[in-house]
């Protein structure tokens, strides 16, 4: 079983106890769950917890899921609800009083603001990468690989002459700077890069 099998095959197989079918369902929908969690701006730990709960709930929901094609909608709704529940629960357990913000505790929110900006910037970079044409995205990912992928291999895999890799990278990065994801980040407020204006 793999992610290309239709849900009409994967769901009944998982219901029957086939763990490879389950793994395929996970691989297929993990990015969807992750994207919804990111949109709700949870902390990484809360995001892990929500993700965990969604998959546990799907395990218990498999028997009730008679229409396999309803699965994406179920995952979307369940993830969104779980995010909202966690946001509400955290809001109540750790209430924020704006009037106390200027007191001794003022340092902590500042630190988390910095973290948040850095997280937003990294998220914008990932979204920007998805806006690039597939070939350019692929080139950048290969150039980021650790351990490094030799230029000969990149050249062969992407059909780009070795001498063009450098210039193509420069063009890809320029295009990345012009993506709506990175432009949106600049328009959003104080420059997250800081101090360079």
């Amino acid at each position: 079983m793999d992610t290309t099998d239709p849900l009409a095959t994967l769901v009944p197989a998982a219901r029957g106890g086939d763990s490879s079918a389950w793994d395929a369902i996970v691989d297929r929908f993990l990015p969807l769950v992750g994207a919804i969690i990111r949109r709700h701006r949870l902390s990484e730990a809360d995001g892990d917890d929500v993700s965990q709960t969604v998959w546990l709930r799907l395990v218990e929901h498999l028997d009730a899921l008679r229409e396999p094609d309803a699965l994406p909608g179920w995952i979307r709704t369940t993830t969104r609800n779980e995010c909202l529940r966690v946001i509400a629960a955290r809001g109540r357990v750790r209430p924020v009083d704006p009037q106390e913000g200027a007191g001794l505790d003022a340092v902590a929110p500042d630190a988390s603001d910095t973290d948040l900006l850095a997280a937003e910037r990294r998220q914008a970079l990932r979204e920007a990468l998805l806006e690039l044409p597939a070939a350019r995205r692929e080139l950048l990912l290969l150039l980021m690989a650790d351990p490094p992928v030799p230029y000969e291999v990149i050249s062969e895999r992407l059909g780009i002459p070795i001498g063009s890799i450098g210039p193509t990278r420069a063009r890809a990065l320029d295009q990345l700077r012009r993506t709506s994801a990175l432009r949106g980040l600049r328009d959003a407020g104080p420059d997250p890069v800081g101090g360079a204006r």
Binding site: W22, D23, D27, G34, D48, Q52, W55, L56, R122, L129
Partner: peptide, 28 residues
Amino acid sequence: ELTAAVEEETAVSDRRRAAARAAFTWRT
């Protein structure tokens, strides 16, 4: 920056994938 962003995503999804796969053991 791009490398750090991509690595972060990979680490998160690897961790969540492992937990999601393990969830199947709770099937009753």
